[in-house]
Write a protein that binds this DNA or RNA. Structure first.
Length: 870
DNA sequence: CAATGCGGAGTTTTT
DNA sequence: CTCCGCATTG
């Protein structure tokens, strides 16, 4: 919303705190447990709600807000609630409105970034920006940095747009700028000096472009408040109640923003405020007292340290805000006890945390299901098959989520889900708005709002290709700068520069298009003659004008690359998005659309009604819950991620990530991994994650344990055509690690693995007998691991057993082999060498496969006629 | 100026 | 493996 009322104009006195709640029982407290009710009702100046996963914190927050309003302790306009994502904000608004009726109008419920944009758009003129500023996403920032690094020839010092950007981001999150950094940096280090130059130049260019990057949105708002106390006072006065969700993930800049907003307004500033401050707003000293602050968080779910989140913000809250009250919510209303026990066991391995255990009164529920695939492909197939089983037993696809650590893991999963015809949706990853063609089209809109933005302008010039190259672009940019005019105006005056007739015509026609579109967007109508001031044109109309005139869609369609058809469709989708926006927000104009697009988060795309399986990273999953959850790639190097192992606190953060993942599951949790994983073209052996060993084995029903797939923990390789792990009978080559025949829901044993193996899930029964030996191996390895750890020095995961090793298996074209999964087949070729030898095999039933000789579950049956023997 | 092709490099999480 | 930048060619 764009309206901005300072205080409710009616001037009705606010009720006395607490009066509404006394006497009759409050329906807003109905069904809350005592700590929850306490968290809703308490009125200390600062409140920390320590809310474990699934403990009903959203409920508490919404009820608290509703109670404040309903008791007339606050007007809706006096409430500022900060959430982590737009989706969470929308949900919270909806729930508060549900509790109150429509009385919630005027509340600010938004993310840090959205709230700051709103403030900055109002106040930008005060410090050299204009309201139409552009918000640079990280790609835009990097594009700008790329130019700067090139200009300064800093690339030879190892600076890249990516590393410079992340360093600048880190500094900005600490509220540093180039000057303050320069004051502390080592001036004798040429690399440091160069970095400072990059940083300074980046700041200048942003300002000149009238653009903020993500971090600026917070940092500059803090800066604004500190520089202009009377501006800060407007917001300090307005927002009497601040509520901040996910407080454990706030960084220093965000923390500072909260501090600024909860500062009392000093007497001398009070006197200058407009409209004049009324007596009842003041305390005895003539100040406007500090706003009430409520924060909600769980330090065990802090997973954004890499983005500057500072766990100290929550740990030291009581010290920061004297008089703070702390309420702990530990009862979980989401998950079964088995899932919670696993979560508690994992997080319990993090030192320096306050001991806290989630519990539920809802019972144990089914065991967690574990599965180890031979490859990520195999793992993905298990996931797909299992989802099918869940679906057949009555679970909606929309109730299932698949999590992973890195976005690249979606590949194999998507492939198998497509093959199984399971509807799914990937959240995040390469987002819609990050696609090249979408960014191209958006560059036009951005440039209309901010004709001084060089990144947008530079992008639109080359999309589509129209004969204006880097030379012409540079000339125009120089000219614009020299004359102090916008890029658009420079293009309209291309005749004053020495371009060839063709180039000049192209430039002028583009300039005219932008001029027309700009008029239209501003509400002047597409043509010159408008005397009637109209509403801003709908965004979709402006977009369509651009797409039609530039022929972007047609040009894509004319190409023969099949990818381009998809790109054309994306552009059409963008038009639909814009139309939808126009319907939802009539008459608000381009700027709001651009803002909203800039600030969408991955999770905002989640549509609860979509009826599709959701794929997302565990970071994206925070704050969500699903009846059935798959956590995939639970391997060393992936979860915890290799990159985190050397970082201080890295493993702890990864463990929290695992904890977040586990606690998303309501009823059924799956932990899956693969024993090999292909990365960058070659295959690598993967070890089970140390986090798996931290979960009591009784909680996990291993359909196929790591022990079964990676060998026996010894060095000898087993007879490869024997049934795996001893006791299990072979299943005619299609035998998979599916041990139990107890099925989930209606016993559909049909949809199993391979041909004939049952894929039905054993949910409530412990593993049946023939699982014992495999489990025994796994246990033995865990025992060894524990012993090693107890012996001191050892890491939890120093012993993970050896892997299957067929290293000495000689294969040649013509050999017959048997594969545990695919059955019998004939080798048609061998490529690669050493541990990366790949056998190309045509199987009798499943056709051609490529297998890593060293690790595939294969055995030689008989040699081909001309095979080389050892 | 644009399109094509080759070679090299980089691989975490995101508002 | 895949994306990106660079150089060559049309």
């Amino acid at each position: 919303m764009s309206e901005f009322e300072l205080l409710d104009p009616s001037g009705v006195p606010l009720g006395d705190p607490g009066t509404g709640a006394s006497g009759a029982p409050d329906p807003l407290l109905d069904g809350l447990n005592p700590p929850q009710a306490q968290a809703v009702s308490t009125r200390s100046p600062a409140l920390l709600i320590v809310a474990g996963a699934g403990s009903g914190k959203t409920r508490v927050l919404t009820h608290r807000i509703a109670q404040l309003i309903r008791n007339r302790e606050a007007w809706p306009s006096q409430i500022l609630a900060i959430t982590f994502t737009n989706k969470a904000a929308a949900e919270m608004r909806e729930r508060v409105e549900g509790l109150l009726g429509s009385a919630a109008e005027g509340m600010w419920i938004s993310t840090f970034h959205s709230a700051c944009v709103r403030i900055l758009r109002r106040e930008a003129e005060r410090f050299g920006y204009v309201s139409g500023f552009t918000i640079y996403d990280s790609a835009d920032s990097r594009a700008l940095l790329k130019r700067i690094i090139k200009d300064l020839e800093a690339d030879s010092y190892g600076f890249t747009p990516a590393n410079a950007s992340s360093k600048i981001s880190r500094l900005k999150n600490e509220l540093s700028d180039a000057d303050s950094y320069a004051a502390t940096a080592n001036a004798n280090d040429p690399r440091e000096r160069l970095f400072i130059e990059i940083f300074r130049s980046y700041e200048q260019e942003l300002r000149r472009a009238n653009a903020f990057d993500f971090d600026d949105l917070i940092g500059q708002t803090v800066h604004l408040f500190r520089t202009f106390p009377e501006v800060a006072a407007v917001y300090q006065r307005r927002f009497r109640f601040l509520l901040v969700d996910e407080y454990q993930d706030t960084n220093h800049a965000q923390y500072s923003l909260i501090r600024e907003l909860t500062r009392p307004v000093e007497r001398d500033v009070v006197e200058r405020l407009v409209p004049p401050v009324r007596e009842r707003e003041l305390d005895g000293l003539g100040c406007i007292p500090a706003a009430s602050l409520t924060v909600v968080g769980d330090s065990d779910q802090s997973i954004y340290a890499f983005r500057g989140a500072d766990i100290r913000n929550i740990v030291e809250f009581e010290r920061d805000f004297p008089g703070a009250e702390v309420v702990k919510l530990e009862q979980n209303y989401r998950s079964t006890q088995n899932i919670l026990s696993a979560a508690n066991a994992v997080i319990g391995n993090n030192l320096d945390r306050q001991d806290k255990s989630l519990w539920t009164s809802e019972g144990d529920g089914p065991q967690i299901v574990g599965f180890t695939g031979y490859s990520q492909h195999d793992e993905a197939r298990f996931v797909a098959e299992e989802i099918e089983d869940l679906h057949r037993s009555g679970l909606a696809y929309g109730d299932v989520a698949v999590f992973y650590r890195t976005n690249s893991q979606t590949r194999a999963l998507e492939e198998l889900l497509i093959r199984a015809a399971i509807p799914y949706r990937v959240l995040g990853g390469t987002k819609f708005y990050e696609r090249a063609e979408i960014k191209d089209a958006m560059a036009y809109l951005t440039s209309l709002a901010n004709p001084y933005d060089p990144i947008a302008w530079s992008r639109l010039i080359g999309a589509p290709k129209r004969g204006i190259g880097p030379m012409a672009e540079a000339q125009l940019a120089n000219y614009a700068e020299a004359m102090g005019i916008s890029f658009h105006d420079a293009m309209l005056r291309a005749g004053e520069l020495s371009f060839g007739p063709k180039v000049r015509a192209a430039i002028e026609s583009l300039g005219q298009l932008l001029q027309r579109a700009a008029r239209m967007a501003a509400g002047g109508g597409a043509t010159d003659d408008s005397e009637t001031r109209k509403q801003p044109a709908p965004v979709a109309d402006v977009l369509k004008l651009i797409l039609d005139e530039t022929q972007m869609i047609e040009k894509l369609r004319a190409k023969r690359d099949p990818q381009d058809e998809a790109r054309a469709e994306n552009l059409e989708e963008l038009v639909s998005v814009a139309k939808e926006y126009d319907v939802q927000h009539p008459g608000v104009g381009l700027l709001e659309f651009l803002t909203e697009v800039s600030l969408v988060a991955a999770v905002d795309e989640l549509d609860d009604e979509s009826g599709t399986v959701s794929l997302m990273t565990m970071h994206t999953a925070k704050g969500l819950e699903f009846p059935a959850v798959f956590i995939t790639g639970v391997e060393e190097g992936l979860l915890p991620h290799q990159m985190s192992v050397d970082e201080i606190g890295g493993i702890s953060e990864e463990r929290r990530l695992m904890y977040v993942g586990i606690t998303r599951a309501r009823k059924q949790l799956y932990l899956t991994l693969a024993s090999t994983r292909a990365q960058f073209g070659d295959v690598q052996v993967a070890m089970p994650s140390r986090f798996l060993q931290e979960i009591p084995e009784s909680l996990i029903d291993w359909r196929q344990s790591p022990g079964e797939v990676t060998g026996r923990g010894g060095t000898e390789s087993r007879a490869l055509n024997a049934p795996r792990s001893g006791a299990r009978p072979s299943r005619g080559g299609a035998g998979r690690g599916v041990e139990s025949s107890v099925s989930f829901g209606s016993g559909s044993g049909s949809g199993g693995y391979g041909r004939g193996g049952s894929g039905a899930a054993a949910v409530s029964e412990p593993a049946s007998g023939n699982m014992q030996s495999a489990l025994e191996q796994w246990r033995e390895r865990k025992r060894q691991a524990k012993a090693a750890q107890a012996a001191g020095g050892g890491f939890p995961n120093t012993i993970v057993g050896s892997v299957r090793d067929n290293g000495d298996l000689e294969l040649a074209p013509g050999d017959r082999i048997r594969h545990d999964e695919y059955g019998a087949g004939r080798v048609t070729g061998i490529t690669g060498a050493g541990s990366k030898r790949i056998a190309h095999v045509v199987f009798d039933t499943v056709g051609e496969r490529k297998l890593l000789v060293k690790l595939a579950p294969i055995a030689k049956l008989d040699a081909g006629l001309d095979s080389a023997e050892e």
